[in-house]
Design a protein around this nucleic acid. Structure first.
Length: 600
DNA sequence: TGATCACAC
DNA sequence: GGGTGTGATCA
């Protein structure tokens, strides 16, 4: 690599005065953009450690029933992991003095969650509320420390931050000469910035070397002297801000976190996990290709699912290094025009915008029912509990942001004994009421429950999972509250729900009708792709039948998957198991979840 | 808008 | 794996 060692690949336009000075510069295309990703190390374990006042070096795991959901770093040294074959017992065998903390739970018939000794999967429901509260505190610190930037809460324990506005300010403060466009600048605002002075990285954390990577060779020792760039300056200043943010989280809450600082979300995210815990890492543009080279490309955000695995199969590639060899045309031939998005992503390019957000848009309280509910009344009891929890959560959210109200309430449910069946759901409007109570929520939930129950032949009911969810949670429109609260649609007697959801409860139907999911009928299941009818065996109990259906369908979809892989010719190939997603003609990447690149 | 699916932690 | 989240797609 001669010459452009600082910007070897991919080529990006050099930053100009416009990128630094113009009000319109705050776009995902600004080369000076600085995005950070931050997540709490083993969050649930740290939350419990702090709650219990346990020393930082004490091994601790957080469990949910007998499943380990978090392992702190001291405990990881003993080989304790979050795997399906390890429970509390195995953890204790590996480390006899490990502290085992169970999540809080709700107890049937009680208002609030707590850390009960007798928490039991049969009678209690896990409560993540305490963790949500910690999460809110952390986000509050982020927002406070990033007043000019944006904060996107990505999950309960991670967030993205856009430091660009603060970084640009700082850049101008440190280099005031950049504020003035030289008189002889050939292209005015669009003149590239003058050469950047050397950078002091000492307060930035880890800096991924160019040409190196985690596996060893340090490119900088190999005779490649890097010229500092303003992009690197921006990252360095962003890293210093991030260090301050992390320090503040530690100071106020005693949580350690890890962070990545880069020019976009995907790169910030992937480098935040470098040398965890309690660390932060800067990924400069020039270091991207070598950093990614040996990584599994499925480690990159959004490539970890079906799409990524299909790509791996089609191109017989596992690492980024292998996948970048695939020319754009070939990728697009196989995965459609849109796949340029993937092509860019594995080259470290991601123009995804942050979504400024601090409150959730949905709230879900759900419970795996053990044993499955067979009596409608039992379902009602669980709904009472779920409704109580949702009510608490909505109230708390409204304390932080007054006026929040959900648009709809959803009852989710699953039949069968495990996950063999897809979940179903019913929803209804959630009318405004001044008196938000668990009973109010439960009433609406039970109404939908009645409909669910009505879909089953008497005595055959078998529900293994129930959930109650608010969706469309947001500030209520001015008019909305007036109309519904004032003039009184008054939830209590609202009939909207019954009308919407099909003449209230449907009349009892025959078994075959009851089972009818979108794709099947009594005699079999029709594949939406090839129209082939796969017969279902007769004489099975209802839950057995559903299980059978799921199995047949999965098998047939696998067949399509294999077929598509095999063909792989001129035609674009549907490389994913063809869910009954789109129409026949749609075979490209559009069949997957693809964040659309946004134009500025 | 309702229901389902994909992807993520 | 359980309990939660977000966003896309399609009738």
């Amino acid at each position: 690599m001669q010459g452009f060692t600082t910007r070897p690949y991919p080529p990006t336009p050099p930053p100009t005065y416009r990128h630094l000075l113009a009000a319109t510069s705050l776009t995902p295309y600004n080369p000076l953009r600085v995005i950070a990703h931050c997540d709490i190390d083993a969050a649930y374990a740290q939350f419990e450690a702090v709650r219990l006042g346990i020393p930082d070096d004490q091994p601790l795991i957080t469990i949910q029933w007998d499943t380990i959901i978090a392992v702190n770093y001291p405990a990881r040294k003993y080989g304790i992991k979050r795997t399906s074959n390890q429970g509390a017992k195995e953890a204790r065998e590996l480390c006899p003095h490990v502290v085992i903390a169970h999540t809080a739970t709700y107890r049937m018939g009680e208002e609030e969650s707590g850390y009960w000794e007798d928490a039991n999967v049969l009678t209690h429901k896990v409560s993540l509320d305490p963790y949500r509260r910690e999460s809110a505190k952390i986000i509050a610190i982020f927002k406070e420390m990033v007043p000019k930037g944006e904060v996107e809460k990505a999950s309960i324990d991670e967030a993205y931050m856009d430091f660009t506005p603060m970084v640009l300010d700082k850049l101008l403060e440190l280099h005031p000469h950049l504020a003035t466009i030289p008189d002889d600048a050939p292209e005015g605002l669009d003149t590239p910035l003058p050469p950047a002075p050397p950078i002091d990285w000492t307060k930035a954390g880890n800096v991924i070397p160019v040409g190196g990577g985690e596996n060893g060779v340090d490119g900088e020792t190999e005779g490649e002297v890097e010229k500092p760039t303003w992009e690197d300056w921006a990252l360095c200043l962003g890293a210093e801000i991030m260090a301050g943010v992390r320090q503040e989280v530690w100071k106020q809450l005693h949580y350690t976190c890890s962070a990545g600082i880069a020019h976009n979300k995907a790169m910030a995210k992937i480098c935040s996990s470098w040398r965890k815990p309690m660390n932060q890492t800067v990924l400069r543009h020039a270091a991207v290709s070598s950093f990614l080279h040996d990584k599994a490309f499925t480690d990159i955000r959004n490539l970890g699912g079906k799409l990524g695995h299909s790509i791996a199969a089609v191109f017989e590639a596992a690492t980024v290094g292998e996948l970048v060899k695939v020319p754009l045309e070939e990728m697009q031939r196989r995965f459609g025009e849109e796949s340029i998005w993937v092509y860019n992503l594995i080259r470290g390019i991601d123009h995804t915008d942050l979504v400024p957000r601090h409150v959730n848009k949905t709230m879900l309280a759900s419970k795996n029912l053990i044993p499955p509910v067979r009596a409608p009344k039992d379902g009602e009891h669980w709904i009472d509990l779920l409704a109580g929890e949702l009510c608490v959560r909505l109230r708390e959210a409204r304390e932080i942001e007054p006026g929040l109200w959900p648009k709809t309430i959803v009852l989710t449910h699953r039949s069968g004994r495990g996950y063999e069946n897809a979940g179903r759901s019913r929803q209804a409007p959630f009318p405004y009421t001044k008196a938000l109570t668990g009973e109010y929520v439960a009433k609406l939930g039970k109404r939908m429950w009645t409909q669910v129950v009505a879909g089953w032949i008497a005595g055959t009911l078998l529900i293994s999972q129930l959930g109650l969810q608010f969706t469309g949670v947001g500030r209520m429109e001015e008019g909305q509250r007036n109309i519904e609260g004032f003039l009184g649609v008054k939830g209590e007697n609202s009939t909207i729900l019954l009308e919407k959801n099909g003449e209230s409860s449907r009349p009892k139907r025959s078994l075959s009708e009851v089972i009818s999911v979108p794709d099947d009928d009594a005699s079999g299941w029709t594949c939406p792709k090839c129209r082939k009818v796969l017969p279902l065996p007769d004489g099975l109990a209802e839950d057995e039948l559903e299980k059978e259906l799921a199995g047949i369908r999965q098998e047939h979809e696998d067949y399509h998957f294999a077929l598509a892989l095999q063909q792989g010719g001129d035609e674009a190939v549907q490389v994913a198991p063809p869910k009954k997603r789109k129409k026949e003609k749609d075979k490209g990447i559009a069949a997957f979840f693809v964040p659309k690149p946004k134009k500025p």
